[in-house]
Design a protein around this nucleic acid. Structure first.
Lengths: 343, 343
DNA sequence: CTGAAAGCGCTTACAG
DNA sequence: CTGAAAGCGCTTACAG
């Protein structure tokens, strides 16, 4: 293994100064066309690549964005929430398109903030990605802000939280899905998913759901809500509890994973989806389309979300103003509610 | 935004030299207990973090691993192969556990190798992850090696390829799945998936499959093979072609995604899985469990794979010897082949 | 145990 | 258009 070439090696071979090499390689207009070409040719021959550490140290920025996944502490190790996974792709691409590198790390919302600061040091900006409540971490967020770290949070804008956030309008998603249910004649509901501050996304969906019921003068006795984390197993358990007590027209689930479990629960009692009980999910994860009964759900445009996150973070880095943004949700009607849309 | 503190600031405040600060912070045994504590306290107060660029430049290594996804050029943008996604989690964790950072980038196998070299410059080692053939890229791989880059390839070891690789035994996977089919009495088969060098993983699965048929003296006229890339749509198309011509006992698919499509095709003709036709997949992606008919498939231990990839790459970086490794596959029997295992 | 000094490989004013 | 020089913020021999 030969030691790597430096700009001095190239300078030597090209018979110019090292400064000129640096200029030529960065396409500075200050350098003669001919010189530039010669330098570039030699650099190529030597398989020379600028040392990022040196370059970044000198330039005082890292040309790197960090993506911090805050894991759902409840979900098991091997199963990352498919929704986030799908955002990873678009974030990676948007980052690369902007000429930045992407540092990815998984964080535990509970304790690993030390690592966050570490990362904030290695990156020009941070993207915070994770379900769940940042409520207990406002303090940390403030500290991040105070420290001058540029960061963007995925999630619903919330005046209680420092920093700007980009998210999907979960309230509106809940509204749309519920209107759809009502239009199909469903009147009594189960709702599965946390509906409190520990899961702001779920709560927003639930609130949207309830608002439509209220609007339509349906009594709150028409709905029974059960907490559940976003897993198939939790959805199954919760659905079973609901079905043991009563038999609503429909079960509204705070996530697709929960919905998968709910469908299994319905079936396990010998009932059919959607003939006996309708089920809706949220997220439009890949499974939802291929499920035994293709799931009616709400799509969140992860492609757009990733791009928005990256371009806005870049704006922050360039000291341009950035504001909260809420993306509209998109209702995807499939078979699990009793409507058969064309495939 | 106040400018970041440096080790000199701390040195000043602590009344010691900057070298001592550096030593104290890195827990050098050379520094007095009391001094260390004072320095650390002040560092904490100032929210000081070592500048990685400076530190890495000085130490001449980056303490970073790069993960390069080679995208299946055929798959659409938004859908990353779930199998790889699942490896991302374990790789990230293993990397973090080793105290390294992870740089993630998506590459196009075709042209973006420039970026690979870039990355090789920013990381101490590279993990190459992607389906498909590296055949055309041997040259690039050699160049990487020549350049002294430490890299590990995910995939079947292959003497034609430079570098060491860690992979799953696809041949054995094909063997096991086929033995299972035979034990259920299936005798005629469709096989969906490329079975040539462009897709070495698929080919190995196919070869394993064929070897068992041969062993059992089944004529090759008992199998019809159709090419397909790893998508639901391609699986659907290919299955339809097979079913239009003949009606095998079972369809063996080179991936779960293909199998999902095959199942849809079988159904679209009014046939049932597995009653009329058995279907098997490969990968054990999340969908396979929740599919309309839970899929019999082959599990690849992504958790282990990720750890193996990281620990072995770290060994390479430390100049320890590393050899190719093939992980055994694991047959997961569910309902799509006609056997009802306990859930 | 501690400090002064060198140097990692760049970029970019400064001077010509 | 080009070169000589400074300096980004560290780590680590070297000297005490």
């Amino acid at each position: 293994m030969k030691s790597k070439a430096t700009s001095f090696d190239i300078a030597h071979m090209a018979g110019v100064s090292q400064s000129t090499v640096s200029r030529a390689l960065s396409d500075s207009p200050l350098v003669n066309q001919e010189t530039r070409e010669k330098v570039k040719r030699i650099a190529k021959e030597l398989n020379y690549k600028v040392d990022k550490n040196a370059s970044n140290l000198r330039k005082q920025h890292s040309q790197t964005l960090a993506l911090l996944f805050f894991e759902d502490p409840t979900s098991d190790d091997s199963l990352i929430n498919p929704f986030f996974i799908s955002m990873l792709g678009s974030i990676t691409k948007a980052t690369a398109a902007a000429g930045y590198d992407l540092l990815v790390s998984f964080q535990n919302l509970k304790d690993d903030w030390h690592a966050v600061y570490e990362d904030s040091n290695k990156a020009d900006g941070l993207i915070l990605l994770g379900y769940g409540s940042y409520t207990d971490y406002e303090y940390k967020l403030s500290q991040l802000e105070e420290q001058g770290t540029r960061f963007l949070r995925w999630g619903a804008p919330d005046e209680k939280h420092p920093g700007v956030s980009i998210g999907c309008d979960n309230y509106l998603g809940g509204v749309e899905i519920t209107k759809h249910m009502l239009s199909l004649g469903h009147k009594t509901f189960g709702f599965i998913g946390y509906a409190d501050e520990t899961a702001p996304e779920f709560k927003a969906r639930f609130d949207g759901f309830m608002s439509v019921l209220l609007e339509n003068a349906l009594p709150s006795s028409n709905v029974v809500q059960k907490n559940a984390i976003s897993t198939e197993a939790a959805g199954y358990e919760a659905a079973l509890k609901i079905l043991n007590d009563n038999r609503p027209d429909a079960i509204v689930c705070a996530s697709d994973l929960i919905a998968m479990g709910a469908i299994r629960a319905v079936r396990s009692l010998g009932l059919k989806v959607p003939a006996d009980i309708a089920v809706v999910g949220y997220d439009n994860i890949q499974i939802s389309e291929f499920a035994s009964t293709p799931l009616t759900t709400v799509h969140q445009n992860t492609q757009l979300a990733g791009e928005l996150l990256v371009t806005n973070l870049l704006k922050m880095i360039n000291n341009e103003p950035v504001t909260d943004y809420l993306m509209p949700p998109e209702l995807i009607i499939r078979q699990s509610c009793g409507v058969n849309s064309s495939k």
